[in-house]
Write a protein that binds this DNA or RNA. Structure first.
Lengths: 171, 171
DNA sequence: GAATAAAATGTATATTTTTGCACTACAAAT
DNA sequence: ATTTGTAGTGCAAAAATATACATTTTATTC
């Protein structure tokens, strides 16, 4: 006498690819805070799996767990290849040409620029919002940078160079 | 007979800011696969802390744990935090709604606002001219507030709430 | 079809990460 | 000086996540 393993229900089984696609979608909507939570949502949509499998899927999909200031921990996913040549970079390099000098006083740094460049350069800095800098105020040819407490000149300079590589050696 | 808690080693204590800077640096070099590993490295550099504190630091720094095809799990940090686009919210036209955050550095406070709101909000502050504030400088989305000497963060926050009651609880 | 190999998944467990609580150091207020 | 408030931290426990191993499913070959 033989015992046969039960065959899977033909209707129900959605395959791995479909499942991972769905995971991708759900995460992009962006309100997932734990695997359990995601698991529940997947089950609602008819997928059957365990947390272990989910963990493996997330690994494959290169999903990351990070922090959102308000929401606590959040899972995020890269839309796709994240190595962009970014035309933004060119613009940044162009802006760096407007940079004329920097001086420090206490927790402030004052950047001098070619007239008219200040606000654009400040915008780039703000956009990047490096941790070392808590804010900037720009006039026409001057940017005031307020450093985070405890930051050294070198740290700040390093941060600026990170943003505008062309500045390297010029500060 | 009394038992005294041991004082912290005067030499050793490096503060939080320094520590988080170091964490940032280490992670940017990009070969950290677990908090324990990072912890070890930090200890080598003379920082004393536990994994629990590290976990909290990583949260503040918005460090993410993700997967690298080859390296397994890796901790990464955003230079430019992928800022939330703030879905065009049904924002009423109250100025306080333009308020996005405040940070302090020395005797300065930096207020971040929704683009375009800074000067209006600053104008309101100037008009009220609270004793705690010597003056303000506004850009497009940033206000620099220069505090009177001896004023605490709380005092300043209180002053702002007085001016804009809606801020209560939001600062 | 049966036999075998490879891939996918579940179970149980190990590992890692997060957090509630208590305590200390320090700043601010009285 | 004393009190009060708060940020920073360690400890221990909880919660979340990853994985070794066993089992099932799918694919491949005869």
């Amino acid at each position: 006498m033989y015992i046969f393993a039960l065959q899977m229900n033909i209707y129900s089984m959605k395959n791995k690819v479909q499942r991972q696609l769905e995971i991708r979608k759900i995460i992009q909507k962006g309100n997932i805070h734990s695997q359990e939570e995601l698991l529940t949502e997947l089950k609602h949509k008819g997928f059957e799996l365990t947390q272990a499998t989910l963990s493996r899927d997330l690994k494959v999909l290169q999903v990351a767990k990070t922090t959102h200031p308000a929401k606590g921990y959040v899972y995020t996913i890269h839309k796709n290849g994240h190595s962009e040549p970014t035309p933004a970079q060119n613009r940044v390099n162009y802006l760096a040409d407007g940079f004329q000098g920097i001086q420090f006083s206490g927790n402030l740094a004052v950047v001098k620029t070619i007239p008219g460049y200040a606000s654009s350069i400040a915008a780039v800095i703000d956009q990047t919002s490096p941790w070392e800098i808590i804010g900037t105020v720009a006039g026409d040819d001057t940017i005031l940078i307020i450093q985070r407490e405890g930051i050294s000149k070198n740290d700040l300079v390093a941060a600026l160079v990170t943003i505008m590589p062309k500045l390297k050696g010029r500060i």
